[in-house]
């Protein structure tokens, strides 16, 4: 069911993470993405994992919800892992050989970390953005961050308005789709059996009414917006003004520090002269 997917959903709440300014969260999310791509050894991965766990913990969203959010991409993860295992050529003898396939220890390690990287990416961005930030404040945050682009003629406000209207109408359209589907099923339409071609054909009685009614909705909404004096962002004020507070500055500073630490952790070790087993393990280059 469509409603079972938790990825991309917003969970209302009152945690610190919920209260942070959306711009702070967007910036931290970008910093995290950079950090995750820099991370290339166990110690940096460990650090980012700890950060992810802390984020989940302070958001007060249950771990099960977060894990359920990863479910939809498990297949893709598995596929990339297999590719990584088979495509990586390592030094020394392969772990085992079969026909033309050679699996190296290094390949397995790489695959695990690759998957881990994707999971971290999804967990951290959804913790910061979708799970704890309402769509509307996310749009506001984006609009505000992209505002400088207005100077070079990018219609930032229009873009943000379109996005928030799209978000507003997603549930309405899902409901509508269900209704039309039921109406056509009542006329004997069959959406779930038959060949691929037949199933595609069966979608026509669903898609055409959906498109027609969406156009009608769009037209009515545009009229209603004009009636409420909408004329783009000309002289427009906002009920909710984004304001950076002390906690935002603190979080931003902390994130910058952590990013620096991770980059250092990823680059520095190779220039260090010491060489002991434990150290090797921590900084094993993936």
């Amino acid at each position: 069911m469509i409603s079972d997917i938790t990825l991309g959903q917003f969970f209302p709440g009152y945690s610190v993470l919920h209260k942070l300014d959306p711009r702070t969260k967007i910036i931290i999310a970008i910093l995290s993405i950079v950090a995750i791509f820099f991370a290339n050894n166990p110690i940096t991965f460990l650090l980012i994992t700890i950060i992810a766990v802390i984020l989940i913990w302070i958001s007060r969203i249950s771990f099960t919800v977060v894990i359920r959010g990863i479910k939809p991409i498990l297949l893709i993860l598995l596929f990339t892992m297999i590719l990584n295992i088979f495509m990586t050529t390592g030094e020394g003898d392969p772990l085992f050989e079969f026909w033309i396939i050679r699996v190296y220890t290094h390949g397995i390690i790489r695959a695990v970390f690759m998957a881990w990287r994707v999971i971290l990416l999804i967990v951290i961005t959804s913790m910061l953005l979708t799970y704890t930030t309402s769509p509307i404040s996310l749009t506001d945050g984006l609009e505000s961050l992209l505002l400088p682009l207005k100077l070079i003629g990018v219609p930032v406000h229009t873009f943000a308005m379109m996005m928030s209207i799209a978000l507003r109408f997603i549930p309405t359209l899902i409901e509508e789709t269900e209704k039309i589907m039921n109406a056509q099923k009542s006329r004997g339409a069959d959406f779930s059996t038959g060949s691929l071609v037949n199933r595609a054909k069966a979608l026509i009685p669903l898609l055409i009414p959906l498109i027609v009614s969406s156009f009608k909705r769009a037209e009515e909404l545009a009229t209603a917006m004009e009636c409420r004096c909408y004329r783009g962002d000309k002289n427009r004020t906002k009920l909710v003004k984004l304001e950076l507070r002390t906690r935002d500055y603190l979080c931003l500073a902390l994130s910058a520090l952590l990013l620096a630490a991770i980059i250092l952790g990823a680059i520095l070790p190779y220039n260090m002269p010491i060489n002991i087993a434990f150290y090797d393990l921590l900084f094993y280059k993936i």
Binding site: S134, I136, S164, R168, R228, C229, T237, K238, L239
Partner: peptide, 15 residues
């Protein structure tokens, strides 16, 4: 227009 009731009511006054 909005995904939250009060933000919808605010739409006109904002304009």
């Amino acid at each position: 227009v909005a995904t939250v009731v009060e933000e919808d009511v605010a739409f006109g006054p904002e304009n």
